[in-house]
Design a protein around this nucleic acid. Structure first.
Length: 643
RNA sequence: GCCGACGUAGCUCAGCUGGUAGAGCAGCUCACUCGUAAUGAGCAGGUCGUCCGUUCAAAUCGGAUCGUCGGCUCCA
């Protein structure tokens, strides 16, 4: 009678037969002692397996070593434990909560530490971690029952951990990992020994609410990065440095696009160059909407609080609004959204089904009171404009309108060369208006629209607006933070609350469906993401300064001025730089402002009415007739080419 | 709003444990008049975020406040 075995297939195709309940480490030993020593974890059919966990089935086994790209994932996991151990060693009485390791090399751990730590304490923790790594402590894996896990941490007085274990099912098998005297609940996998943590660095410390709830006490969270080797750590640091160069806040200042002032926190000033970019974008969206049957309107900026009592904002959005008490005891508010105004326009006259879908778009400035700690450059502001529109239609027309939204969104982002969009449906939040059944149907319609448009669709549970579920178009900024740009929402409250009606084919009154949608979302936020996406190298049609004219010397100033004027009259945004500086100096200055065309005029050009042009990022200089240059530029602007 | 850090000339930064501020770039002036990434010289520029306190004396120490940055929470 032979004992049962498992069949494993190795990456090179060879097959390995091991006794049942062997561990990946056992398999590694069979392959060779070198591999067994270097192995960090295993992948069985692409799922992580801990080296010490008995295999439950055969399959394709890959042993991960520091040389593999995925090594970092395992190392970070173990680095979390080592960091937690270090903090406990340094500050006895520390309660550990949980750690997490994410993408991009980062890991974190939350603690309740008896003292407040600052960044200055990080080197001390790093040193302690280094000591633990030097101790070469093996990670031990242990599977225990729920009760055993509870008693383990109760014994240690780990109140937070006990509470976390309480979340797990009573019949769950719990895996513990130990190294030295430190133990934590963890699914794994972990490296074999602390020594295998190749390179790490603690990067920051911050607060975080216990269980993510701001009514709970605040814990201290420490962030770090860890990799298989020093080289990856260096690469990470270089990547962050590069990313920072593309930060829209930095580019905004360097290119003279926008600024902030402490007397109006979170409210951007668009400087002349920024306003040109802004106007170009709005102009583009105006055209797109007009083509698609939208009608632009402008509603007031300030309304009586009564409007928002009807819309539901007063009860559900109050702390996000700028409310102003009036001398006579009334209350007025800066509008945080355009929708209530559009509802008033809709019901200003008797509407017929023949008018539907009725699409109103608006570029008013919206104001929302965002808490001070949430403000962030142009991505999170208190004053912004959306390419916003509301569609009033018959309920049966909703799918077509959603399809049109998805199409416009796809086309617009494509035209701008912006990729990396993530689409998700944000569902009913805890605080909402309307009927749950209607929400379910609306959410379903949104999912179907995303699917018809061919996008993979995620779900952001409970992230919908209080009045509508929404399709969200999400993008990451240069430091991997996710921001929502475009959205499409099906309103669950406004048509009823505002008593909106239209006369149907049947002569009876019906309630219209109402959609909210914005393709770029907040223009401010869009500009931020787009600047980071392009690194400030905007396509010609969006460049604030499309060309700069450089006279070779003083005697060419008049030609430069004439050339500049001719280009301006052709509708191009052009400036002449006739400062008393060397040509090289002025070329450099134009380069740093990321101007797409550098145009030089000297004796030769003055003589025959030509210009010598060099495109940014090109080394080639072309001399051509001014007229020809104008036409080339106009054509590129007209077709909104993306380089 | 909460936790932590930061706040010195337009920008980037120096200024050790308290003795009333310094550089580079930008700006201005003069000279140079130049063919695609920094010509040279000179000048000017700051009540050290703000307020209160400690001290003979505060950019430096303490407190408060505002703003910014990194997170948390919240959100386009």
């Amino acid at each position: 009678m032979s004992s049962p075995t498992l069949e494993l297939e190795l990456p090179d195709g060879t097959r390995l037969t091991v006794p049942e309940a062997s561990t990946p480490l056992d398999a590694a030993r069979q392959i060779g002692p070198g591999l067994a020593k270097a192995a960090l974890a295993g992948r069985l059919d692409d799922a992580w397996v801990d080296l010490r966990a008995p295999l439950r089935s055969g399959g394709k086994l890959r042993l991960i070593t520091a040389r593999d790209d995925e090594a970092g994932d395992v190392i970070r996991h173990s680095a979390e434990h080592v960091m937690a151990d270090a903090v406990k060693r340094l500050w006895p009485g520390t309660q550990i909560d949980v750690g997490r390791s994410g993408r991009d090399g980062k890991f974190q751990y939350d603690f309740d530490i008896p003292v407040r730590l600052g960044r200055d304490d990080l080197p001390r923790i790093e040193a302690e971690m280094q000591r633990i790594i030097g101790e070469d402590l093996p990670f031990e894996r242990q599977v225990v029952s729920h009760a055993e896990a509870l008693s383990e941490f109760e014994k240690q007085g780990e109140v937070l951990k006990v509470s976390r274990i309480g979340d797990l099912a009573a019949d769950a098998e719990i895996t513990l990992f130990r190294h030295g005297s430190f133990v934590d609940v963890c699914r794994g996998p972990h490296v074999q020994s602390t020594r295998q943590i190749g390179a790490f660095k603690l990067i920051d410390i911050s607060g975080s609410y216990w269980r993510g709830d701001e009514s709970n006490p605040m814990l201290q969270r420490i962030y770090g990065v860890a990799f298989g080797g020093k080289k990856q750590l260096k690469a990470y640091e270089a990547r962050i440095e590069e990313a920072l160069k593309r930060d829209h806040r930095r580019l905004g200042a360097e290119l003279g696009l926008f600024m902030f002032h402490e007397w109006s926190p979170g409210s951007p000033f668009f400087l002349p160059n920024g306003q040109k970019l802004y106007n170009a974008l709005v102009g583009y969206m105006r055209d797109r909407h007009e083509e698609q049957g939208f009608q632009e309107v402008t509603a007031p900026q300030v309304f009586s609080a009564d409007l928002f009592k009807v819309s539901g904002h007063y009860e559900n959005f109050h702390q996000d609004m700028f409310m102003i008490p009036e001398p006579d005891g009334g209350e007025i508010a800066l509008k945080p959204m355009n929708c209530p105004g559009h509802c008033l326009i809709f019901r200003s006259t008797k509407r017929s089904y023949r008018e539907l879908p009725l699409r109103f778009n608006e570029y008013s400035r919206l104001h929302r009171y965002e808490r001070s700690g949430t403000l962030h450059g142009l991505t999170r502001v208190r004053s912004f404009v959306q390419d916003d529109a509301h569609i009033f239609c018959e309920p049966g027309q909703v799918p077509d309108e959603l399809d049109a939204f998805m199409a416009m969104m796809t086309e617009t982002y494509k035209a701008l060369g912006l990729d990396g969009i993530q689409v998700a449906v944000a569902t009913r939040p805890d605080q909402f208006i309307g009927e749950p059944g209607d929400w379910d149907r609306a959410e379903q319609e949104l999912y179907e629209a995303v699917e018809r448009a061919g996008y993979p669709c995620g779900t952001n549970p409970g992230e919908g607006a209080f009045y509508a579920p929404k399709i969200e178009c999400n993008f990451k900024d240069v430091l991997d933070r996710v921001w929502t740009l475009g959205t499409a929402q099906i309103d669950m409250g406004a048509p009823g609350r505002f008593g909106l009606e239209y006369v149907g084919r049947d002569g009876a009154d019906h309630q219209p469906a109402m959609l909210h949608r914005a393709v770029l979302g907040s223009l401010e936020r869009f500009i931020a993401i787009y600047l980071e996406h392009t690194g400030g190298d905007l396509p010609l049609w969006l460049s604030p300064v499309q060309a700069v004219i450089l006279p070779i010397s003083e005697r060419h100033e008049a030609v430069a001025a004439r050339t500049c004027q001719a280009l301006r009259e052709a509708g191009l945004r052009v400036e002449a730089d006739d400062r008393s500086e060397t040509l090289n100096y002025r070329v450099r200055s134009a380069e740093m402002l990321k101007v797409p065309f550098i145009v030089v005029v000297g004796d030769a050009e003055a003589e025959n009415g030509s210009v010598t042009v060099r495109r940014r990022h090109s080394r080639e200089q072309r001399t051509l007739a001014l007229k020809e240059f104008v036409e080339t530029m106009q054509e590129e602007v007209r077709t909104r080419g993306v380089s």
